[in-house]
Structure formats: C-alpha cells, structure tokens
C-alpha cells in the first residue's frame, strides 16, 4: 500500500487574540502548528502502512517554512516527504490548492509508484473550509470518503475499503473501491508522540521539494490567477452587546430571580 497524507501548517487559531483597541489580530506568541485534524490523518496513514506494509508519504503545500510540519510527519513515522512551494502558488483558493496538490500526487505516482489511499484532515483550522480534500478527489478521479471516523477494513488484494463516516445524526458505513481519498475526523485515532530517536531518524529521511515547474500546470491554473474566489474584505466579528440583567450576591436570591425570568420566557416554549 502506498498512502499519501496531505497536511497543512496553520497558525494555532485557538491562541489568536483580537486587539480590542485596533480590532486586529494579535499574532504575537502564536505558534505555527500542524493542523490538528491532519495529525489524525498522519496517524491513520502510518497505521495503514504498519498493518499492510508499503510506505506513507507526507505532502504539504506552503511557504518554505512549512517544511516544519513535514519534519513532524517524518518523526511520527512517515517514510518520505514532499514540500510543494513556489511563489506561483501564493494566493491560491481551495480550487487552485486542490489542483496543485493533485498535480503533485500525480508527480509522486510517477516517481514512487501508484498511490492507493490519499488521506486529508477534515478541514484546516485557519480556513475551516473542508473543500480541498473533495477537490483533490475529483481531480484524481478518486471516490471521496469524507468525515471518516473509523477504517473498518482494508483489503489490498480485492482493492476495497470499508469506513464509517461521522454524520450529524449518525454514522454511515460505506464500502469503496481502492484507490480512494479519505478525510478524517478526530474520533478516528489518537496520534502518537514521536520519540527522540524517531525525531533524530527523521532528519535522514528524504524531503523532496516540488516547484511550479515540476507540476506541469499552466500559470493561469495556480495562485491568484487560478483562484475564482477573492477576499474582498476582512473585518472583526460584530458581537451583539446586550445590556443584560446580571444577578450577583446571595445564590438563593439570584436563582429565584433567574427562575422568574426563565418561567416568563419559557411560556412559549414546549417543555
């Protein structure tokens, strides 16, 4: 089995704060991390290799410093890493990004051999779109299996996979032919922590850089030119400020007052 895991370097958005005076992002102290959903993708990719043999390849697209997330993937147990980096890709929206990544996966197939499974996290925490995974699937003509919470069975001989997909009100069990593309949710596994030994070993694993010229795409298919969507405006979220009634003091008194209000407003609500 050859598995390609697509990952992204993101700012740790849970640490991002807004400067209340200027209403702008405060970047200071915000770390760049592996997109948390991608850690589950890496882990699953490694587990598949451990169970069925073969190799797991990590892939990212981003500025040169995105190499850091590939180092993490290698330390966790991926065998090889590809960094897609070129100024030509700056400003890519999800359509252009998916095209660029799919072109890189085709390149990997040329170099390393056919890919059986592509795994992505369900979405990245900076953009939160979840659109790149399905986009890559279309470009590579792979069946997309999104929001996978469990891989039930992989049969490399008969070339099929059975997964559970996490939906709003239940789980769907789906069988698909291989090759296929999976996007995974956090219930799927618990990502491992790389040991010091693994981190050391990782520095000797191959890290290959792909640029615009390697991918055989036209200039108008990538970056700003290849992106149908434009960011028109960025602004701070407008939270309604309510001058509510906040009760303080003796708990019993507060609760009595709140209960009165609650009973009043629940009159129209079926309890």
């Amino acid at each position: 089995m050859r598995v390609v895991v697509c990952i992204k370097q993101v700012p740790d958005t849970t640490e991002v704060k807004i400067n209340p005076e200027t209403n702008t992002l405060m970047r200071e102290g915000v770390q760049s991390i592996v997109n948390p959903f991608d850690e589950f993708a890496i882990e699953e990719g490694i587990r598949i290799k451990e169970a069925h043999g073969g190799e797991t390849i990590a892939l990212t697209m981003g500025p040169p410093q995105a190499e850091e997330v590939l180092k993490t993937a290698l330390a966790m147990g991926c065998d090889k890493a590809y960094l897609i980096s070129d100024r030509a890709f700056a400003g890519s929206d999800t359509l252009a990004t998916a095209l660029t990544i799919s072109a890189a996966i085709k390149k990997i197939e040329e170099k390393d051999g056919p890919v059986d499974i592509v795994i992505c996290g369900k979405q990245a925490i900076d953009g939160d779109t979840g659109q790149v995974g399905p986009g890559i699937a279309v470009r590579l003509n792979l069946p997309p299996l999104t929001y996978v919470s469990k891989v039930r069975e992989i049969n490399p001989e008969q070339k099929y996979i059975i997964v559970e997909r996490l939906m709003e009100r239940g789980k769907e069990v789906v069988k698909s032919t291989l090759p296929a593309l999976l996007t995974v949710v956090k219930d799927i596994n618990t990502p491992r922590y790389p040991s010091l030994f693994e981190i050391k070993k990782a520095s000797k694993k191959p890290m290959i850089k792909l640029t615009f010229n390697d991918l055989g795409l036209r200039e108008d298919q990538t970056g700003l030119k290849g992106s149908p969507t434009w960011v028109n405006k960025i602004f701070s979220p407008d939270l309604k400020s309510v001058s509510g009634e906040i009760f303080q003091g003796e708990p019993e008194e507060c609760v009595k007052k709140l209960t009165e209000k609650l009973l009043e407003i629940t009159k129209g609500v079926s309890l």
Binding site: K17, W230, V231, K233, I234
Partner: peptide, 15 residues
Amino acid sequence: PAFGGNIMATILCPN
C-alpha cells in the same frame, strides 16, 4: 468566519 472565528472575511467570485 476565518482564523477560527477571530476574523470575518467577505469573499467574491466575480469571474
């Protein structure tokens, strides 16, 4: 919302 809801973005698809 983008950046984990920290900012809002308005997106256009003009062409």
